[in-house]
Design a protein around this nucleic acid. Structure first.
Lengths: 241, 241
DNA sequence: CGTACGCTTGACTTGGTTCAATCCTGGTGG
DNA sequence: CCACCAGGATTGAACCAAGTCAAGCGTACG
C-alpha cells in the first residue's frame, strides 16, 4: 500500500459532486490516492431510454458504476428467450460478468435516461493493488451481488406470486423510496413485462396481484407512480405461509 | 508484480500432487511466487458426510478450495426454510459470501466425505496484489460463480420440471462423468430432497421425472449411480418448447 | 433383524398460465 | 388542439403442470 498525496483538483473533485458519491467505489479514497483514482475515470456515459450499455460477446474492458437512472441486466438463452437478472440503480457496479472469460455475457440496457461512470478495468486493478480500502470495497460489492442473486433463488423457489411481488415492491421502495418511513413513494422505471420476466410470472399475474394490493389498500398506484400505503400489510403477506 | 525465486519444496509441491491442482488458484503460479503461495495454505480440512464447513454468522477469515468430494451451499430464510444455492466439486472456490459484511451468510456442508484447502483471506489478498495471473484467476472464479447463479435464474423461471432435471443431469455428467462421451457415469452425492430443493420442485416431481427418463431409456440408474445412456435425448427435451 | 428414512407411485387439487377481449395512455400527425 | 393508433395494462374464463396428500416399497444402518 502506498500513499499518494492529493494534488489534482480534477476530475476527482467532480466525484464529490456526484449524486452517487457516497455509494461509489471511490468513497473510501477521501484522503489519499485521489490522483490515482482520478486517472481511472475514463468518462461519464449518458444513456437514453432503451439504449444498451453492452451486449453479450463484447470484449470486456470496462466496469461501470451507475450514477443516476435505472438499468436492467439480462441473459439471453441459446433459443433466444431472455431472462432479466436484475434491476440496478445509483451506486451499483456493472460489468463484472465479463471478467470470467474476457467477454461480456449479459445484455445491459437503460430503463430510463441514465448516467454511468465508465472505468477501465486495467486501471482499476492497479488502484486495487495499491489501496486496500478500495480493494475491500470492490470485492465487497461483488460479494454482495452474489448474495443478492442467491437470495433471489430462494424467492423464486419458495415464494408464491403474491409474496414475490410484495417483496419486490418493498425492495424497490427501500432502494428508491422518498417520503417518510410509513408511506414511501417511487416510480416504476420497468414495464409490467420486465417485472413479470424478472419474477418468473406471467404479466397477467403481475397485473392482477398489483391490482389486488391496490384494492386492499396496501399500495396506491397511478400509472407507474407507486406509493406504499401499508408497509406492514405487504410485509405480512410475505411471511404468511 | 514481483518475482520470488522458488526454493521451498514444501508445502507447495504437495499442491502438485493434489487431484484438484489443475483447477486450483495456484495453478497459475507454476514458475514463480511459489514460496509466497505456500505460506497461504493454512491447512487441509477433512469433512465427514453432513459435516458443516461454516454457518451463517461465522466471522469471515478463510476462503476454501475443494480438493475432493462434494459440498452444498444453502441460504436460510428468516422463517427457517432453507434453499440450496449450489452443489460444488473439486477445484471450486467457497467462502466469498463472507466478503460483503465480514460474516458468512451461507451454510455450507459436505454431501460425502470431502477434503478442502483452507486459505486465510488476508494472505491470499497479499498474493493477489503481487501476482497478477493469480489475481485474474481469483476474480475470474468469482465472476464465473455470478454467471452460474444468474443462469440458474433463467433455469428456474423459464424451464419446466422435465427441462430442469435434464439440464441438471447433463451438468453433473459434464462435471463428474467418467467414461466415454456418449455414455458417462457418475454418482449422486445429494439426496432427491436436495435436488428438489435446488431445482424448486417437489421431491415427488423429481422422482417421477427421473423414473420417466429411465423408462424412456435416456438414463440408467440404480440407487445413486447414474449413467447417461442417451445424451441427445436429454438435450433434446431441454430445447423442446 | 427391524426400523426409520429415503424413494417411488397413484389420485386429486390448485395456483398460475394461457387465451381472449377490453381498456388506457402517451406519442404522432393532421 | 384534438383524433387516432399502437403498445402496454387490466380483467375474465378455462385449462394444465406441478404440488399435495396418501400409501407402499426398498435398503442402509444400528
Amino acid at each position: 500500500m502506498r500513499n499518494v498525496k492529493a494534488s489534482s483538483k480534477q476530475p476527482f473533485d467532480s466525484c464529490k459532486l456526484c449524486s452517487a458519491y457516497k455509494l461509489c467505489l471511490g468513497y473510501t479514497l477521501c484522503a489519499d490516492v485521489q490522483k490515482e483514482f482520478s486517472s481511472i475515470i475514463a468518462r461519464r456515459v449518458n444513456l437514453k431510454q432503451n439504449q444498451k450499455l453492452y451486449m453479450p460477446g463484447m470484449r470486456f474492458q470496462f466496469v461501470y458504476i451507475i450514477q443516476s437512472g435505472s438499468i436492467k441486466t439480462q441473459v439471453l438463452s441459446c433459443d433466444g428467450s431472455e431472462q432479466i437478472t436484475g434491476f440496478h440503480f445509483a451506486g451499483e457496479l456493472l460489468g463484472i460478468d465479463g471478467l470470467a472469460n474476457g467477454a461480456h455475457v449479459h445484455s445491459v440496457e437503460a430503463l430510463e435516461p441514465s448516467r454511468v461512470c465508465k472505468i477501465p478495468f486495467k486501471s482499476l486493478k492497479n488502484v486495487l493493488t495499491k489501496h486496500e480500502p478500495t480493494c475491500n470495497r470492490f470485492l465487497s460489492m461483488i460479494s454482495q451481488q452474489l448474495i443478492d442473486d442467491q437470495s433471489m433463488l430462494l424467492t423464486l423457489n419458495q415464494l408464491t406470486a403474491e409474496q414475490r411481488i410484495a417483496k419486490f415492491l418493498l425492495k424497490l421502495s427501500n432502494k428508491l423510496g422518498s417520503g417518510n418511513g410509513l408511506s414511501k413513494e417511487f416510480r416504476f422505471s420497468m414495464s409490467r413485462y420486465d417485472i413479470a420476466n424478472y419474477l418468473g410470472l406471467a404479466v397477467e399475474t403481475v397485473s392482477r396481484t398489483i391490482s389486488r394490493f391496490r384494492r386492499e389498500g396496501s399500495i396506491a398506484i397511478r400509472q407507474r407512480r407507486v406509493r406504499i400505503v401499508d408497509r406492514n400489510k405487504l410485509a405480512a403477506c410475505i411471511n404468511a405461509s
